[in-house]
Design a protein around this nucleic acid. Structure first.
Length: 569
RNA sequence: GACUCGGUAGCUCAGCUGGACAGAGCAGUGGCUUCCUAAGCCAUUGGUCGAAGGUUCGAAUCCUUUCCGGGUCGCCA
């Protein structure tokens, strides 16, 4: 609603004024920070400069255009303030309109109708087999899942792909370690943890004995060619890992359309290599095959000296496979900052090959989780296991419940939802590309700008609404919305759709997260100030209706972020 | 060294396609539970927006330089 008004004003002002002066014009409509400056604001400096007229004339023209605007009935006051023209909205008219639209389901559900036939592939989570599910992959999982939800909300078809890291030289290393110094009994008991120990030990030993790396590459090369013994080991590791990951996915309530990992593309790389060769792009350098990408970028290494392939080779194959099978409009990769160069190279390679879809391939980068200010590294054994973090969060939320509401039914289940959502929200509330220091306490905090705060707010509203039978009859006391706080809530409700849109445009779930915090905080202020179960039925119904709108949006937003909705806590 | 991302309150961060006196949460301080869950609310302390120049009527926001930190830089993924 608010967004519609802004858009309309912008278009009308631009049309009217640029028509009068026959000059192109871009009008900016802002929201002033201070309440007494109005609801909307138009900096006229800009207009006066663009139209080459003195400021006073520009002010006059803007005001007269506003007076004749089609949304004039929704404006209560238009006035100048310095070089700005500011205006107040007609609170009652807006409130009436927003409530009406909401009743039609527009504010929340409108966006649910298919609005496009766009297809977006999202490559996320993608843990590395034979390693524990790490915090880094948690970030990818949470961000990717939330983005998928946001796009679906906007009517986009989303293909969720878990591009498992299930191939590559690392398996040569792990297999070597397992065969040469692995304790087979220990491994079969606790595969992932033991395998990662072996992997770390391998890297340790390889430091003083480089022949190990050579041997590992040989094993991978054979694996790639189909060595039965290695293949069986590999399959077993993959299965064991996947079982572990499923536990995490179940807790997070995420699922995928495809688990085609790197190994899946083992037989799909040759056509790419042929294509590159045919186009004369594949050059030999130091015995390896590369694609030269010019001055700005290091070359892309496509084939190793021994002919075996690399990450980028399989990623290229995956990209073409997705292009052919999903016909994506966009292919997103939710992968950490440190792989920036990798994706720039992929894009550069497909451009060199003469394909035009590189702009539709996007690296949705996210910040590293640091430990002591440095990147964590599996190779060096520095690793934080996600399951431990989630378990801790659940344990803490259970102790919170014991303290606050010991009689609550179904405590364990609710503690799980609170704990997991706390971790999810903690990740999404900040802009994704920021690095952050690993901080367990921060991840499981329950006060302030946190997941539990949102859940708590929703639960509070729920318990008020449930206090008595309530059937909204559509009759409200609009005059209440003359109040600043009521009106601010109405404004926020009215921009929910625009918020989702913005989150999608910026690939930034944090936009939704910040918005929900603000909305929740408004309600809590309201709750502290207003008695809701008042005698006056009309007033009570109006308040309850306002709250039900807030709750509907909170719940909808939390679901988008991949959080869990609860009724009681 | 090259490229790249970041440096805003004690801490975690928003604001960054230039706009009006720089905003939240946490921590600190002082209040609020006969009445819908205090995982809350209210009030309050706290900032020369890393530094220096520049562009502009106007800069946290754009440009240049510089300092500090992270990341990446052919046979890992």
């Amino acid at each position: 609603m608010l967004e519609t008004i802004k858009k309309t004003l912008k278009q009308e002002l631009e049309a009217t004024l640029s028509n009068i002066y026959s000059l192109p014009l871009q009008v900016v409509i802002e929201e002033p920070k201070r309440r007494d400056q109005g609801d909307l604001s138009i900096p006229v400096f800009v207009i006066s400069k663009a139209l080459l007229i003195p400021l006073p004339d520009a002010l006059k023209q803007v005001i007269s255009a506003l007076e004749n605007s089609s949304v004039r009935p929704l404006l209560s006051k238009i006035f100048t303030l310095g070089g700005f023209v500011n205006l107040f909205l007609d609170k009652l008219a807006i409130a009436k309109e927003v409530i009406h639209q909401f009743k039609q389901g527009d504010s929340i559900y409108h966006a649910n109708r298919p609005l496009s036939d766009k297809v977006v592939c999202i490559d996320y989570s993608s843990p590395n087999i034979a390693k524990p599910f790490s915090i880094g992959h948690l970030r990818s999982t949470i961000i990717g899942h939330a983005l998928g939800n946001i796009f679906e909300k906007l009517g986009t078809k989303v293909v969720r792909i878990n591009h498992l890291g299930d191939f590559g030289t690392q398996f040569g290393k792990t297999i070597y370690a397992y065969l040469h110094f692995g304790d087979k009994e220990a491994v079969s008991k606790d595969p992932i943890n033991e395998l990662v120990k072996l992997y770390v030990e391998f890297n340790e030993r390889a430091k003083s004995d480089p022949s190990l790396d050579v041997e590992a590459r040989r094993i991978f090369k054979e694996l790639e060619l189909g060595n039965v013994e290695f293949l069986a080991l590999w399959q077993w590791m993959r299965d064991a890992s996947l079982r572990d990951y499923m536990e995490v996915y179940q807790l997070l309530d995420v699922s995928f359309d495809s688990y085609a990992g790197e190994a899946f593309y083992n037989d799909k790389m040759q056509p790419i290599i042929d294509d590159l060769t045919q186009k004369g792009l594949l050059l030999e350098d130091d015995g390896a095959m590369i694609v030269d990408l010019g001055e700005q970028m290091p070359p892309a290494l496509i084939q190793k000296t021994d002919g075996s392939t690399l990450y980028i080779t399989r990623d290229l194959a995956a990209l073409f496979y997705r292009k052919e099978n999903y016909h994506f409009d966009e292919c997103l990769y939710v992968v950490g900052n440190e792989q920036r160069l990798h994706f720039e190279q992929i894009k550069a390679v497909i451009e060199k090959m003469g394909y035009d879809f590189s702009p539709r391939v996007k690296h949705i980068n996210f910040g590293l989780v640091l430990q002591d200010g440095k990147k964590m590294s599996t190779r060096k054994g520095k690793i934080v296991k996600l399951l431990d973090v989630l378990t801790e969060a659940i344990r803490l939320s259970l102790s919170y419940i014991e303290e606050k509401n010991p009689d609550l039914e179904d405590k364990e289940r609710i503690a799980q939802k609170i704990g997991v959502s706390a971790v999810v929200f903690n990740d999404l509330k900040n802009y994704r590309a920021n690095d952050f220091e690993f901080d367990l306490e921060g991840m499981v905090k329950f006060e302030g700008q946190t997941g539990p705060y949102l859940q708590y707010t929703s639960v509070r509203i729920q318990s008020i609404l449930q206090a008595e039978d309530f059937e909204f009859n559509g009759v409200i006391d609009v005059s209440l919305f003359d109040d600043e706080l009521y009106f601010e809530m109405i404004k926020q409700i009215s921009i929910y759709q625009a918020i989702i849109q913005k989150a999608a445009e910026e690939y930034a779930p944090s936009v939704v997260a910040k918005y929900l915090l603000h909305l929740a905080s408004l309600f809590n202020t309201f709750y502290g100030r207003e008695k809701i179960m008042v005698e006056n039925v009309l007033e009570k119904n109006t308040k309850k209706h306002l709250l039900s709108m807030v709750r509907a949006i909170l719940n909808d937003g939390m679901k988008l972020l991949g959080m869990q909705i609860i009724e009681k806590m």
